[in-house]
């Protein structure tokens, strides 16, 4: 790939998804685009680039964006956000909503480990929540392929050994040939949708908890404020936002305030604080 080709890829990703791709990382770009080229029937990446220039085809461009956006994830990644959700956020909101559903959104859900970790928590805590409490789980991603994999609930032996306690595996999974299959009762707790987080989200709905971890940092400086604005509009006034543990909340502005002593947790309404 020439540096011009890399610039083109970076441009496509920035335009369509606000995704920041460093055009200097030729090796990374090539390693991501190789599989796309093969899948689309091109002999080499150069042929894929040629087609992109020539046809500007939507499907092809999105295939590129999806491949560049793909990120590693794990069950209960970073642990503390999930401990916080289980011990404080979920019981507090379940009590406050008095039978109205608590709506939880895993934005940029990737292959589904985050939202399924939340689903397992909700199922395990059901008996301890306020009587009549309801929880609705939503997951979205930019990538159709990621959503397909996530919805299947099938994971490799490596994937189910990253972050998932063995007792959770025994409780919620069955073996399916070489893979591990998540129980249908957990899978069915989640509703899925393809969402581009930097596009117009006004139809996405209202959420009480949003997990949007390790997304902001991967966006272009132009796209970041758009995402934050979108999240602020999508979250309920007393809702909670989880960002990645290492993500600087720069640019969050008035919309979100860090919850003191709770790494990665942000509140929409400054007047509201988490019950201890």
């Amino acid at each position: 790939m020439t540096s011009e080709d890399c610039e083109l890829i970076a441009q496509i990703c920035a335009q369509r998804a606000g995704l920041m791709v460093d055009p200097a990382k030729t090796y990374l770009i090539e390693s991501r685009l190789g599989p796309v080229a093969r899948r689309e029937g091109f002999g080499a990446i150069d042929d894929l680039i040629g087609a992109l220039k020539e046809r500007r085809e939507d499907r092809l461009a999105w295939g590129v964006v999806e491949a560049m956006a793909a990120a590693e994830t794990a069950f209960f990644r970073d642990r503390t956000p999930f401990d916080l959700f289980r011990a404080e956020v979920l019981p507090t909101l379940a009590r406050l909503r008095e039978g109205e559903p608590v709506r939880v959104w895993s934005a940029a859900c990737g292959s589904g480990q985050e939202v399924y970790s939340l689903a397992m928590i909700v199922e395990e805590e059901r008996g301890a929540l306020a009587p009549g409490a309801r929880v609705e789980l939503f997951a979205s991603d930019l990538s159709e392929r990621a959503l397909e994999k996530a919805q299947s609930g099938l994971y490799t032996q490596f994937e189910i050994q990253r972050g998932l306690p063995i007792r959770s595996l025994v409780r919620h999974f069955e073996k399916a040939d070489e893979m591990w299959a998540l129980a249908p009762r957990i899978r069915q707790m989640v509703r899925w949708r393809r969402i581009n987080l930097v596009s117009d989200l006004s139809a996405a709905g209202r959420f009480d908890v949003i997990f949007c971890r390790n997304v902001l940092g991967g966006l272009t400086p132009n796209a970041r404020p758009r995402l934050i604005e979108n999240l602020a509009r999508a979250i309920s006034p007393d809702g909670f936002l989880f960002l990645g543990l290492d993500e600087a909340p720069h640019g969050l502005g008035e919309a979100f305030q860090p919850v003191a002593g709770r790494a990665g947790l942000y509140a929409r309404n400054p007047a509201f604080s988490v019950a201890a």
């Binding site: 794990a74 642990r79 032996q157 490596f158 050994q161 990253r162 972050g163 306690p165 063995i166």
Partner: peptide, 17 residues
């Protein structure tokens, strides 16, 4: 805890955590 072979460093570290 329980590790299924093959394993790698991440798996061992996460299981011991």
């Amino acid at each position: 805890e329980y590790i299924m072979k093959p394993f790698d460093g991440d798996i061992i570290a996460s299981k011991f955590a």
